[in-house]
Design a protein around this nucleic acid. Structure first.
Length: 488
RNA sequence: GGUACUUUGGCCGAGUGGCUAGGCGCCGGUCUGCAAAACCGUUUACGGCGGUUCGAAUCCGCCAAGUACCUCCA
């Protein structure tokens, strides 16, 4: 395969050329949502980041298996000594079945991803559907001697593991330091060391979500689902594992330890982490309570939002920053993105209507290569977007008759725009044309043609009436040299 | 306290040694019966102090400010 895709590997802290384990095939695993609440802006970032990677790998010609899990068991509340997990707690508060809560938020997550034009992954495994695999994985770690049982729970023996392998390599920590600095938490009496983590947790009597295991009735630990499901669907070794930077430690560190302990080798070749979205310079997160849900963005229903923002604006806003940088949310920043996107998409539609000349006075060569190079440089979407804006400038000049383009250059330009705007960046016009919409468009055209006639008769009263009333209904009317354009 | 990282023009945000992205906004212009929109043009920045170099936003050192992780979090 001819390409020079470089991606930043958190393990080595540098960009590395991407070479898959199996030629022409890529396995990637990304940590998905915990479905006990609505997705917020922060959840959109990894979804979009790895959607871009998924799309780009496919564009390069790979057959990609993209696994993104749904976490519906196992994450402990920090105040829950009893080992009550988040799903169960929420369920009891709402007096719903746990799986009802899971289903509700999973559906809403899917809906949000769909409107963001995030492609569905190849496999979306639920943790609750892979209890057996997690038990088997835990048993492998026990058999390898890197875990111990304590009162019905199984814990990973970090100190022992660290003697043979290296615990902390991903996040740059060492066990000795951690033993000194880790805070004392409650409920750690069963563990030998504070750094040890649960692989299987015995359920307290009031705990709703529980499964039988060789050790106790309980539930799997915080990190085991990704090791178990990742290797189940992608193999003992696979190419890419992604997720948010906040999962680097402890979650991904523990995953590495689990997989290495169970399988004797590291599973993941490239670890990729997207940075956080901040709000007022601070991370947007559930625990800080400073998050804005995607639905609130779409409805404009939040005190920090000046207006509703379309899913494509959110997507574009995220793509305008590199995925490894923090990006600071503000209503003003989103408004800027909205205008930029609107201009880009109008130019894209304008491009479709350009007429070719016998030769080109604009230089469009190299756009495809430049965009490919930017994508190959660790998915540098902001650079791709900047090239598209530069090309947009040319499109506008041609549209204004100040420049010309040949038929073959026009075809190439259209092809590049379709490829990068739609296929790779996944941007699409917000108002998707449909059959009903066509009729309605014709009606508006009719009105505006009447206005045109009135104008020709210098009947300004009528022409202004039509324009003003349409504007009052939310339309934007633009007069052009020989007619009009409009949008809503 | 430990670890990792950040600091770019009015705002957002790329950029790792010379060619000094891009968007939004501002301002000027074109178009227009008026207006709006659109389009065109303009707007030169890299936290501070040293150092390396012919040359640094980019490398090194110190200082300052800020963030993340170390507990569930995308």
């Amino acid at each position: 395969m001819e390409h020079n895709l470089y991606i930043y590997n958190t393990l080595s802290r540098r960009k590395e050329q991407f070479i898959p384990i199996h030629e022409n095939k890529v396995g990637m695993y990304v940590c998905g949502p915990t479905v006990y609440g609505d997705a917020h802006l922060g959840h959109a970032r990894p979804a979009i980041t790895f959607d871009i990677l998924f799309r780009y790998l496919k564009h390069l010609g790979y057959k990609v298996r993209y696994v993104r899990n749904i976490t519906d068991v196992g994450h402990l509340e920090n105040d829950a000594d009893s080992g009550e997990d988040k799903i169960a707690k929420k369920a009891r508060l709402d007096e719903l079945e746990p799986m009802e809560v899971v289903q509700y938020y999973t559906n809403r997550y899917h809906k949000a991803m769909e409107v963001l034009n995030v492609l569905p992954p190849s496999i979306e495994p639920h943790a609750s559907g892979h209890i057996m695999e997690q038990i088997d994985f835990t048993r492998k770690i026990l058999d390898a001697g890197f875990a111990y049982e304590s009162e019905g729970s199984i814990y990973f023996d970090v100190e022992k593991y660290n003697k043979k392998y290296q615990y902390g390599k991903l996040s740059g920590r060492n066990v000795e330091d951690m033993l000194e600095t880790t805070r004392e938490l409650d409920g750690q009496g069963e563990k030998r060391r504070s750094v040890d983590f649960a692989l299987w947790k015995k359920a307290a009597p009031e705990h709703i979500m529980r499964w039988k295991s060789p050790w106790s009735e309980g539930f799997p630990g915080w990190h085991i689902e990704c090791s178990a499901m990742g290797t189940k669907y992608l193999g003992a070794e696979f190419d890419i594992h992604g997720g948010g930077m906040d999962l680097m430690f402890p979650h991904h560190e523990c995953e590495i330890a689990q997989s290495t302990a169970a399988l004797g080798k590291e599973s993941v070749h490239y670890w990729m982490h997207n940075n956080m979205i901040t709000i007022g310079g601070q991370k947007m997160g559930k625990s800080l309570g400073n998050f804005i849900t995607l639905e609130q963005f779409f409805c404009g229903n939040h005190k920090l939002l000046s207006k509703p923002f379309s899913p494509m604006t959110i997507r574009f806003f995220i793509l305008q920053a590199h995925y490894r940088s923090t990006v600071d949310f503000s209503s003003a920043a989103l408004e800027a993105s909205e205008r930029g996107l609107s201009r880009l998409m109008e130019g894209y539609s304008r491009l479709q209507k350009l007429t070719a000349s016998s030769n080109s006075s604009v230089d469009t060569t190299g756009l495809r290569t430049k965009c490919e190079e930017a994508m190959c440089d660790d998915l540098n979407t902001p650079i791709v977007i900047s090239y598209l804006f530069e090309a947009l400038h040319g499109i506008n000049l041609i549209h204004d008759g100040k420049d010309t383009i040949s038929a073959s250059d026009l075809e190439e330009l259209k092809s590049v725009f379709t490829l990068f705007v739609e296929d790779i960046l996944g941007l699409k016009p917000d108002n998707q044309a449909s059959f009903e919409i066509e009729a309605y468009k014709h009606a508006i055209d009719l009105l505006l043609n009447m206005r045109l006639e009135a104008k020709q008769n210098k009947d300004w009263a009528t022409s202004d009436k039509i324009r003003n009333e349409l504007i009052a209904l939310g339309f934007e009317i633009k007069d052009t040299k020989d007619g009009f354009e409009w949008k809503i």
